[in-house]
Design a protein around this nucleic acid. Sequence first.
DNA 1: TTTTTTCCTATTGGG
DNA 2: TAGGAAAAAA
Length: 784
Amino acid sequence: MHDYLKGLNEQQKEAVLHINGPLMIVAGAGSGKTKVLTTRIAHLMNQGVDAFNILALTFTNKAAAEMKERIEKILGNSEARNLYIGTFHSVFARILRGEAHRIGYPNNFTIYDTDDSRSVLKTVINEMNLDDKHYKPSVVGNRISSAKNALVGPAEYATDYYIQQEDMRANRPAIAQIYAAYAARCFKNGAMDFDDLLLKMYELLKNFPEALHKYQHKFKYILIDEYQDTNAVQYQITKLLAAAHENICVVGDDAQSIYSFRGATIENILQFQKDYDDVKVVKLEQNYRSSQSILNVANEVISNNKGQIPKNLWTENSAGEKISLVRTMTDNDEGKFTADTIQEQKLRNHYHNRDFAILYRTNAQSRAFEESLRRMGIAYRIYGGVSFYQRKEIKDFLAYMRVIVNTNDEVSLLRIINYPARGIGKTTLEKCAIYANEQNIPLFEVVSRAGEFGFKGGTLEQLSNFVTMIRYFQSLLTDKNAYDVAVQVGKHTNITKELFADKTTEGLARYENIQELLNSIKEWTESPLNEEDGEVGEKSLGAYLQQITLLTDADDDKENSDVVKLMTIHAAKGLEFGCVFVAGIEEMLFPNAMSINTREELEEERRLFYVAITRAKHRLWLTYANTRYRFGQLVQNEPSRFIEEMPEQYIDKSYAGGGARNNFSSDMGSAFERMQRGFGFGSQAADAEKKYGPPPAKKTNSKPEYLPITPPSSKVVEHKPGADFVASDTSNLQAGQEVEHQKFGFGTVAKVEGSAHNPVATIVFKLNGEKKIMLNYAKLRIIS
DNA sequence: TTTTTTCCTATTGGG
DNA sequence: TAGGAAAAAA
């Protein structure tokens, strides 16, 4: 082990060497926070603290993984694998898995992501005969989430005067009942949503003294990263856990608090000093990341916020280049400017793709950048947005696995009971749901005892086939691993086959995604057992499913891949990049229109801006557009008020005003750009192709007004069948036969396809062109 | 029951 | 604009 104290400054050393008693580290941006945390943990272990007694909570899995890795490097052994390092959610999920029996949950409880949770809410709202247009699941869900994060249960929610007043004023008085029904339903489903992972952990510690005692003594040393972003539940949990030993170390920066929307409160950081006696406070004020110019701008901007914890962030780094402020005409130009500049910087200053990040306020802004990067042939990766595990095909597949492990999980059951289509439709399911609610039994039980509930014939057969299949998968659990089960699921459900048969681009992508999922399950199954696998400690399917839900796509980062990174500013917290573009510095967008109503909101936007700026090490571009498409509508935005808050002497505004230099392209591009803007695509289009490659295929919305080969279906040329029209038996219909359709008239059968139960004929009609006709329903008269 | 078409609404942020 | 959900057609 090398001397880990070397290379630390005085304050950092002070923080690392403090072992017992409460410690608060106020860590400015880029002040070596992670280094201090990891070194401190290594130091604790070096002083004889057992890794099993250390708990470190972070906000992202990535931060946790990075910490673990760095500790291992310092220590030079693999003791670090015994540390409890992870996000609040993943660590608590692990603990709850082991303690589930105490709070009445199965240890294989399902974790619902936001989509799953909204779908439960929708079901509950509909069952209560409320209008889901008025009680929107997303709105109600956010309200319930805030309640949970503030430790307000359904009972308290219903009786709290102010909460009720608020709901009344919003004309949503039933939220309290929905909340109660939602919580009950999740419990019945054996499922927890993200907020439950925190709330149930709190309840476990609060209501079960043995559990509290156990974990208080297990976690003798507690470290919490990003403390400024903790909310009330997280605060209460850590307070309970730390009460016995008071060896709690929190790291935070009030200037970087950006998660108040999910209940985080800066109060926690201020409260910390009141909660414990003799809190040692260490301020890390030397910034090792950014150039002088960048830091000066950041400091100046944040000074507009009131009530900051006083600190003086400074750096020994050189002044560096000025910050570039760039105005473009449109959001697309903003994208082109960014891609062009990246290309130019790569050539001129020998940067790589991986040195660049494009940060924006909202995910919707990513598209313009994607397009222009693709045209320039620059490799990029988007973080956030729809993650891998949120894709439909992946969720469908995982839903099978979830049902196998926990048949009470109604959300997953409803997802798959008729996917792939097996003839169990809406009517059948509605009946099942009614029985399940009447008798208060799980939906799956109704399905598996369908005969007793009066289902007969084909429906009964389909239902029992489904149950038999699930039971078969369950029988595999005892001696097959997660991967083997997954393969069987793919095979017996025909999911793989069905997707493989779909030769469209999207179908191909879906098939590949499933393959990728299978690979990742295999990889997980074969990876060595470690602390991550939970209290229960096994490689079961249940363990796999629980960790998968808590992953985000920022986590499976191929760190070395040479790509430009695109993400929201929120997602960029804790990261740093050589060159940073912050896009859309406009009123309504940043600060966002939703967050300009109170001083608190505006100050949070400003902190967000501060976070964005301080991600940059060497170069920083701030871009904004005169007009951009929002909502499919062209809108004009003023430059952001934050621009005026930046000190002029560090800003290069030569691309921010009007005039020729306003145009970003240094050479012939500028004329083209002006032409294009003024006159639409003209003779210069060829130049554009040379420069940017062929434009992406445009989906034309305008229908040609002449010569439609197949008339639009809305304009069916009506055919009136004779009074004697009699539908023929079409069970043996062959290609080449002539038929008469009740509505479309005469035509020739081109082919017959589809399953035996649901044959589909493609028929070319004389008057109405090609149609796909489902023979089970359409009335056809065979002529020859 | 399944597929296609039309309609509608959303865009602050994430584990 | 785009994607999902409801409505309509098959």
